[in-house]
Design a protein around this nucleic acid. Structure first.
Length: 121
RNA sequence: CCAGGGGGCCGGGCAGCCGCGCCCUUCGUCAGGCUCAGGAUGAGCGGGCGGAGGUCGAGGAAAGUCCGGGCUCCACGAAACAAGGGUGGCGGGUAACGCCCGCCGGGUGGAGGGCUUCGGCCGUCCGCUCAGGGAAAGUGCCACAGAGAGUAUACCGCCGAUGGCCCCUAAAAGGCACAGGCAUGGGUGAAAGGGUGCGGUAAGAGCGCACCGGGGCUGCGGCAACGCAGCUCGCACGGCAAACCCCACCCGGAGCAAGACCGAAUAGGGGUCUCGCGCCCAUUCUAGGGCAGGGGUGUUUCGCCCCGAGAGGCCCGGGUUGGUUGCUUGAGCCUUGCGGCAACGCAAGGCCUAGAUGAAUGGCUGCCCUUGCGGGGACGUGGUCUUCGGAUACCGCCCGCGAGACAGAACCCGGCUUACAGGCCCCCUGGCUCC
RNA sequence: GGGCGUAUAGCUCAGUGGUAGAGCACCGUGUUGACAUCGCGGGGGUCGCAAGUUCAAUCCUUGCUACGCCCA
């Protein structure tokens, strides 16, 4: 087996990932950012605007399930992968989101995607 | 059976595959930490990572953060007072409460009863409800309307007995409404200074009387709130304290991001040791000026810029990212018995039931349950219709699709409040039907 | 997780137990050849929502909702 997949837990890591490539899909936004040889890592974040604690936690669980299935095969080596929850990420069909994650990861592998968002002052 | 009200309980079930968190057992591996014994080492304990197996793993509100505590830190000699805040019938329960239970009193609804001048009044039972101390301690407010709004008042009105005037020979009777009397009626208002009735009177009025309401005193009952009875007072005392206030009682402040411990890199602080620190002016020291010296630019002189006193080692304390701890056995839960109207208490036995920290319960699927929509066929000791062959928009049955709420522990308890699909149980009231 | 605050016209804010206001904005009108300025007039409000106290609530009390701030 390869290196275990680490989980991002520090605020600084999330801020760093925000400088990476963005790929938006109906249920989520995927950020990918090289982390300099630390292996595949992932993080999940959902803002308070999306809903109450039940909705946010459920969305994060589904995202982790998606990443657990996708990252070993399709993840980018030595990159941080961050999923940001969007509205509809709870109701959306799981298989559909799984396909969308594959598409987003493919685009990220080809180094395509929206430019990083500028930090607002 | 239906409707309304009150109270209590549950809040999808079973299974499969893949996953998550704590803990336990075990195996492997990696540093090699601590203790003991001690000749190359041994024994025990502990740590990180990975694998396997096993137990357990969100709520009735985990929510809002509105009250009350435990716990922790800070402050403080004790207590009292003051300030500020809170609570507010009485008694009980409790660790405590603004919570709970019981009782009292008020309001309100229903049932049936008594009296009645038919307007109402009285008492009984059953519910629902109340932030329910004090308004004769004081201050303040009561807009508009209205004559008058808190020491009451007199617009319309009533009367005009008595006095006056008119009529008249005079008196009586009558008239006028001048003096004056009245607070019943109209009207205004949220509220008009006890209510109803009778008497009384010129008209009236607690002016007198009866009943009701109210104040005071006494007695009895009750732990008390308060109730009952008697005597007495014609009634003096409108409302607002979720206005200031008074009275009684309670409260030190902050909160697990409390608090404790460990502590990387970098920067900075203090101490100490070693080495070093050109000359002159000036000087307590520092800072300053000049000359010499070194470096850079430049072919060189000159010129310009920089350096020109610190460097290294060790120790100490503070401290950020981060980590560990606090962290789950507690006013705990279940059962039974006893005491109590109840809240609750006591005793015995049994049980251990989440501990995450970018935050553990998820993903996919099958069956069942509840329910909605659509369809099917005529399967049914079910209904309905029937020409008795059958038909069928109902119910059951089968199939398909959909829905199953509010909502996620974050130090822990006791309450309150708020959100909530659906279901179950008990009690009360009313209606219909049957025995 | 914990501790606080605010909500009134389209915007920024006053306000107090009885009738809700100011400035800017908007509309009409006058002045001007026209516009700006200026003058006059006007419209616009469930006072965040819901209960309660009171004769009467934007105000007092309680409970919700939304928004914002602080504690690493």
């Amino acid at each position: 087996m390869g290196d275990p997949i680490q989980v991002l837990r520090k605020r600084a890591d999330f801020l760093a990932a925000n400088r990476g490539l963005r790929n938006a899909r109906p249920g989520f936004v995927l950020l990918t950012n090289p982390n300099g040889g630390l292996g595949k890592r992932y993080g999940v974040t959902v803002t308070k605007k999306i809903g109450n604690a039940v909705v946010r936690n459920r969305m994060k669980r589904r995202f982790r399930e998606l990443l657990r299935d996708a990252l070993p095969e399709e993840g980018l080596p030595d990159h941080d992968h961050v999923l940001i929850g969007r509205e509809g990420g709870v109701e959306r069909d799981f298989a559909a989101m799984r396909a969308e994650l594959t598409a987003a990861l493919t685009r990220a592998r080809e180094n395509k995607g929206d430019p990083p968002r500028r930090r607002r002052k």
